[in-house]
Simulated assay, not measured.
Amino acid sequence: MDDALALPALVLALSGQLVQKIHARVSQEGFEDLRPAHGFAFARISFGDATTADLAEHLGVTKQAAAQLVEELVRKGYVLRLPHPHDARARLLGLTETGWAATRAADQAARAAVAPWREALGEERFKELVADLTRLAPHGPIRPAW
């Protein structure tokens, strides 16, 4: 197979494996009511200054779909709505302590999921891979702010 075709297939396969492994481990840590999409929402919310419209843009969904996701996460106790300091109609989103706990569990799960890669490549090559991917995706990684 042509490398230009192999790369997207391999990156997508690895991405799918990562999402599955992280989700499985987060569920094992007691957050069985979360779906992988919730983790992507947490990443944006934890960054700060996120409204439902910001979340919709981040997730690539409609504002209505984002509002439904937010409502679900509020109901489950992971997210809260706060007054917006500059727009009385908008609400800022924040993680509750339970939301932060799920985020920390996902962070640990992500480290565990890539540990075999680190072993297979060795520490130096692993760091080079991270650096290469950072150059290719300068606005990543999707990782919560602490």
Rank of each mutant, 00 (worst) to 15 (best):
A13T: 14
A66E: 04
L55S: 11
T98V: 10
V19Q: 08
A88Y: 04
I22A: 03
A109F: 08
T98M: 12
V19H: 00
D87W: 05
A88F: 06
E57C: 02
T98I: 07
W117D: 02
G77L: 03
L133S: 07
R143F: 02
L133N: 08
G60C: 08
L10T: 13
V114P: 02
A88M: 09
P138T: 09
T96K: 13
G60Y: 05
H86L: 05
Q20D: 15
R25I: 05
L93G: 10
T62S: 15
A6H: 09
H38D: 15
Q64E: 15
P85G: 02
A109P: 07
V130E: 07
Q108P: 00
R125W: 09
A41K: 05
P141K: 01
Q64T: 15
I22G: 03
S27W: 07
P36C: 01
D132V: 07
A4S: 10
A56Y: 10
L93K: 13
H139V: 01
A145Y: 07
W146F: 03
R81A: 08
D132R: 12
A113S: 14
P83V: 03
G140H: 08
W117H: 02
P116E: 12
H86E: 13
A50P: 04
G60N: 12
A56I: 07
L80K: 15
A131M: 05
T62R: 06
L34S: 01
L92S: 03
R25E: 15
D54Y: 05
G99Q: 02
Q28R: 15
V74R: 02
Q108Y: 08
T134H: 12
L82Q: 14
K21C: 03
D33G: 11
A65R: 09
I45D: 04
F47K: 13
A4E: 05
A101L: 11
Q20G: 11
A115G: 05
R75Y: 01
K76D: 08
V79M: 07
E124H: 11
W117L: 10
A90Y: 01
D54H: 13
Q68Y: 06
I22V: 15
L82C: 02
G140C: 04
A24Q: 15
V61C: 12
D3I: 12
L95Q: 01
L136E: 09
R118Y: 07
D2I: 12
P36D: 00
V74F: 00
H139I: 01
V114W: 14
A50I: 02
A65M: 06
A113L: 10
T51E: 14
Q17F: 10
K76S: 08
L14Y: 13
Q20T: 13
H23R: 02
